[in-house]
Every structure is written in C-alpha cells, then in structure tokens.
Design a protein around this nucleic acid. Structure first.
Lengths: 248, 248
DNA sequence: GGGCTGATGGCACTCAGTGCATCATTTGGG
DNA sequence: CCCAAATGATGCACTGAGTGCCATCAGCCC
C-alpha cells in the first residue's frame, strides 16, 4: 500500500528481494490504521485498535513506526532519501534552481503514484491539527535538503545562504500550492502541469526562466534580468540588476 | 504586611514574589520551566518538576499552557494576534509585499524585546527536535496569516493564491534567515538591519523594489520587470512579462 | 451570613512511547 | 541432523503528557 501495492506473495527466504525488504507487517499496519482513521477518525483511534485489527502485538507497531503519526506518512523517509540522493548526483554544470525544482517534482511523483491514498491522507491531515503539525516537520526536512543543496551551489555568491533559504522556501511553497490544488480535486487533473506552472513562476521570479521549448543546452549565463522602476536613476537600475543577479 | 510590598500569599514559596505580585502564575511557570530546561534539558524536565519548583499544582500548568511545548513560546499567541490585527488595519492603497514585510518586522520586534530570553530559547529549540517541530507549527501560523492577507490583496490577479503563498513563504524564510543569524550572534548585532537587508532581497525578487531614498509616493504600477533569455522568441518574452507582472 | 463566581488543587484515568525479558523462527555451522 | 547465535515478534511493566471531574477557597454582590 505504501508504494507498489503489488506484493501479494510473501516469498520467504528470497535473497533478491531481501535487499529492498518489504515487511508485510508494515503494510498491514498502514492498511489497518487508515481503515480505522477513515471510519472513526485519527484521534478516536488508539494504537491498540490498530494492532488489534492488524492482528499483531502492540510493541511491533512501534518497531516499524516511531510514533503514531508516522503511520500516516509511511513512505516519506524513502522519498527524502531519494531527493537527497538526486541532489547529490547532479553535477555543477546544471542550473541550481532548475535542479531544485526537479527535486521537488520527485515528491510530486511520490504523491501521484497513489492518488487515492494521497487524497485520503490529505483529507486526514487537513482536519487533524496534530497531523498537520507533523506534516510540517516532514515538509521542513525536504525544504532543508533543498536549502542545503542551494547553499552549496551558492557558496561564493553574496547573500548565498539567504538566497538559498528563500528560494528553497519559495519552491516548496509553490510545490505545495499546486499539490494541494491537485489533491483538492481528488487527484483528477494533471498534477505535473499544475506543478510545472507553479514552479515556473518561482523560476521566473528568481531570474531563472522556465524550461525553453528547445533542448536543455542552456547556460545560466544566458539569462538576462532587468528590474527597474520608471524614472528611477541609473544607479538604482544597476543596483537592482546586481541584487537580482546576486553576483559579486 | 510586614514587608514593603503587600504579599497576599505568605505561606507559599518566598522566591517567586521577589519581583512583584504582578506576574501571576503564568510568568512564574515560564521562569521555573526555563530554569530547569537550561540546567537539566527539556526532555529531562517533567511538568511535575516545573510545577514543584513554581510551587503550584500540576493542573494549573495545563490551565495556562495547553502543552509542555507551549511554555517555551509564551508570547507567540499575542504576537500572532498583533500581526493579524496589523494586517487587517492596513488600507488598500499600500503595497501588499511591503505591508507583509512590515508585519514580519513585528515578529522580529518581539524577539528583540527580550534578547537573552530569545537566545536561550533559540539554543533550546536548536537542539531539541520536539521543540523544533513545535516551532514549525508556530511559524506556519504566521506564514498562513501573511498568505491569507496576500490572497485577499491578490484577488483578481492571475495565480493570485500561488503568488500569495510563494511570497509569504519567501518573506518568512528571509525573516527567519536574518533572525537566526542574529540569534546565533547572541543578539549582539543590529537585528533590524539584517532583517531589512533580507526582506529587501525578497522585495526585489518579486518586483517590489526596496524602499527608495525618496519618500514613499511610489505606486506599484510604476514597476517594470523584464525577464527573458537571449535568443528567446518574442512570444516567450511576452509570456515572461505577463507571468512576472501577473496581471490579466 | 448566604449564595455566587472564578481560580486553583487534587485525584484518577487514558494513551503514547520505552526498556526489558521471553519466546519463536530462521540461519549457519559442525 | 542438531545445536547455537541472531533476528524478529510479543507481553509486561513503567514513565510521562494531557484530560475530566470534583472539592476547595478566595473575593464579591445582595
């Protein structure tokens, strides 16, 4: 249920799949938890209820999920690892903002893999304050991963850490805005289009234009940005250009 | 009344009322909590320890603070109310982004009112994961207040909610970046200057230039923004201008 | 005084989360 | 084929946060 629900055959002793170990008990706990959460609410469901329905011991629940909230986000740990790995794999030639936007798309993909599950979870987190708070801490880790990557890429630029933090926050906000609008429509529309549009706004705001029709041979040096005010003195125009480009 | 100040509670502890009888029980609880948090750690301190030191009943703690984490952020509820009031008080003539930046400065002012307290709390939240998560939910409410204000101001603009969410996130990120850098320096430098610089970056990124030398008679209609890529077709340039300006 | 109100304290309870010991299953040699 | 280490599941007892309920005690109005 968590990722690919196609795991009906618990082949024990298969070394090949032991690498990507998929404990069946974990998925059973997630399924039991969501069944109860949906039919009687999150706070009205105790961990004892979940383990009773799943037919396992109470102690086993906390072996797979460090807290009751974690069962609602069963695959975010893996997704976060994927994102950090994706960011670390990029070379220094690509555009930092574009790379961060692509990393955000990884998260969208995880949500889009199981639309019904994602929509159910969205409705749950929307109405339970405790789950909203927990989701914030999850999203915060994504944002920190993006910001840390950008801090590394912006090392040497003036206000590098500031730019990194702001752009990471903007990317996450745009991604969440599009994701929520998609979730609100019960996962009907095209999530990629919505997210691309939102991320395009962020890229345009920070001087990195959205993907051109042509293939990706562009270099960041080709970007021209002018931010000015009619009738402003020349030194103000230059100052704006310097601020926007952020180069020393 | 043997002493100079009329002490209404002669039997209780003789320590808490040295300052004045003005701070009721709430401030005594905050003081006791921070004393214990600093000397033995947050998680190593139970609510029973706090109420024992404050000389009050355990039940009274939860009367003033809905949770143990809340005692670490005793004045954020008031600050959030001040911010929403400030945003609601503005008229429709002022620049939305500038107003939101001013609202963020309100939060900074609250931190700057008690530098030592703020620095202590910063060190605490930096090392205790549970407090970090709680702080996120607090910051999230500020961000939502800013975003809701901007959504109202951007109603009618294309991608109004997207712009509102992204700008609110960027403002909060810039504010936090500056605030943390100030807290990391033990509250020594000038917090206002740092935050002004950070917010100026956000304003410049979103087409709203930082405060000009001249008096504030500017109108947002005077802003001209061009974001393009050398060699891009004309329709792309027009699209970028439309996207950046965000008018229909 | 007598009753009213609001703040407080005490008590018992639920539930999340943890440490520890025990039992079952698997694995891996000899 | 059997024994032993290892891994995983379970039960049990415990801590600590948070809640509901009721008793208590202050001031206060009549």
């Amino acid at each position: 249920m968590s990722s690919s629900s196609a795991a009906p055959t618990p082949r024990r002793g298969d070394k090949a799949q032991a690498a990507a170990a998929k404990p069946p008990m974990r998925d059973a706990l997630v399924a039991a938890a969501f069944q109860l959460f949906l039919e009687r609410g999150y706070e009205q469901t105790t961990v004892d209820d979940i383990v009773a329905l799943a037919g396992v011991g109470r102690r086993s629940f906390f072996r797979y999920f460090p807290s009751k909230e974690d069962v609602v986000f069963p695959d975010h740990e893996r997704c976060l690892a994927d994102m950090t790995e994706f960011l670390a794999a990029g070379d220094d030639g690509d555009e930092p903002v574009g790379r961060v936007c692509d990393a955000a798309r990884l998260v969208l993909r995880m949500y889009a893999e199981n639309p019904t599950f994602s929509v159910q979870r969205y409705r749950l987190t929307k109405k339970v304050p405790g789950l909203r708070a927990y989701e914030l801490s999850v999203v915060w880790r994504y944002e920190r991963a993006l910001a840390e990557y950008l801090r590394g890429r912006f090392a040497g630029r003036r206000d590098g850490t500031l730019r990194a933090d702001v752009i990471a926050a903007a990317v996450v906000a745009a991604h969440n805005n599009a994701l929520r609008s998609w979730l609100r429509s019960d996962g009907q529309g095209d999530a990629d289009t919505t997210v691309d549009h939102a991320l395009g706004y962020v890229r345009s705001a920070f001087g990195d234009p959205p993907a051109c029709p042509g293939p990706g041979g562009e270099r960041p040096e080709d970007v021209v940005v002018v931010v000015s005010r009619r009738g402003a003195p020349l030194w103000r125009v230059v100052q704006e250009i310097e601020t926007t480009l952020g180069r020393d």
